[in-house]
Amino acid sequence: MSRVGVVIVAGGSGSRVGGAELKQLRWVAGKPMLLHSLQAFQSIPEVAMVVCVLPKQYAGDPPPWIFQSDPERMLISVGGKTRAESVSNGLEDLPAECTTVLIHDAARPLVSVPMIRRVMDEAKKGHGAIAALPVVDTLKRVDADGRIVETVSREMLWRAQTPQGFPRDVIVQAHAEAKRAGWHAEATDDAALCERLGIAVHVVRGSERALKVTEAADFARAELMAGWNEGDDA
């Protein structure tokens, strides 16, 4: 059986949410955001280890609720100055037995097991895989004054989500090459690192429930989404 390792990125400051408490440690839908994701990934037998990447001040003294999980399949890693650096730190701490890697943002607390499995199964085929949703809204490009310049075709456009999965050697190579080339810090997700190198990444169906909590109003949206049955992603 292919052993799967998971890196949950929870190292950001969450400044757009406001307040003194870190966004990824705040409660939503009955538990802290990070704990939602941690327990979802650990419910999958193939997952051998989950690395939670936390800010330095929390890594040495994590919140006690984080141990409402399987501590034997959990490690704490120290976050970096950028998201990409935090992922790199998490990858380094994964046990060598983990040959497939899933990378997930703690800011998406409502990720479901079926969605995780779709990404995991696709990545096991030997290429990258990300959860995503097709764009359904009409897209407008505007100038600095907010004036519409053009309507952008939404055909073949997808909204990227996490988790994103890769063969371990592929994503480690992608991060290493990005560091050498000097554009490591620019990447907003891990698929972008692979794209720059011409490494194949496929999309699998994501979920509207897996919204990203970015601003204060998103907490209310997440509470509503938590009770929404979306087929097999419930």
Rank of each mutant, 00 (worst) to 15 (best):
E230D: 11
G198F: 07
E208R: 11
T162R: 14
L133P: 00
A132N: 04
L94K: 04
A96N: 08
V172Y: 01
G14T: 09
K23A: 12
A160F: 07
V28K: 07
E208V: 14
H202M: 08
E72N: 14
V172H: 03
M120C: 08
D169R: 15
Q24F: 14
R196N: 00
P134M: 04
G90D: 02
A20N: 13
A200D: 13
A192Q: 13
T99E: 15
S15N: 13
M156W: 12
P63I: 00
Q161F: 04
P95E: 03
P95R: 06
A178M: 00
A185M: 03
V101D: 03
V111G: 05
M120K: 08
I171S: 02
T138C: 03
L139R: 10
Y58V: 04
V28R: 01
H184K: 06
T214M: 09
A107F: 01
H104K: 10
I130H: 02
A185W: 06
D145G: 09
W158M: 12
R141S: 12
W183R: 14
A131D: 01
E92I: 10
V51M: 02
P32V: 04
G12Q: 02
L102N: 07
V201P: 05
G182W: 06
P64E: 15
A216E: 15
E230R: 04
K179E: 15
V7T: 10
L75E: 11
G198C: 05
E150R: 08
G18Q: 09
C98D: 03
A226G: 00
H127E: 08
D145E: 12
R108A: 11
G11D: 11
L54H: 05
A129G: 01
A192F: 02
E92L: 12
R141L: 15
V47N: 07
G206W: 06
E150Q: 11
G182I: 11
S88A: 14
K212R: 14
T188S: 04
C194I: 09
I130V: 12
A59N: 02
G231T: 07
M49W: 07
Q173W: 13
I116H: 05
I148N: 10
K56D: 13
V119Q: 02
E92W: 10
I66M: 15
P71I: 05
T82G: 00
T162C: 08
P71W: 02
G128A: 10
C194Q: 03
R83F: 14
W183K: 11
A192L: 13
P64Q: 09
V28F: 01
D70R: 12
R73L: 01
M120Y: 07
T214I: 10
V111Y: 01
D105Q: 14
Q39I: 05
R16W: 05
P167G: 03
A185D: 15
L193M: 12
S15W: 03
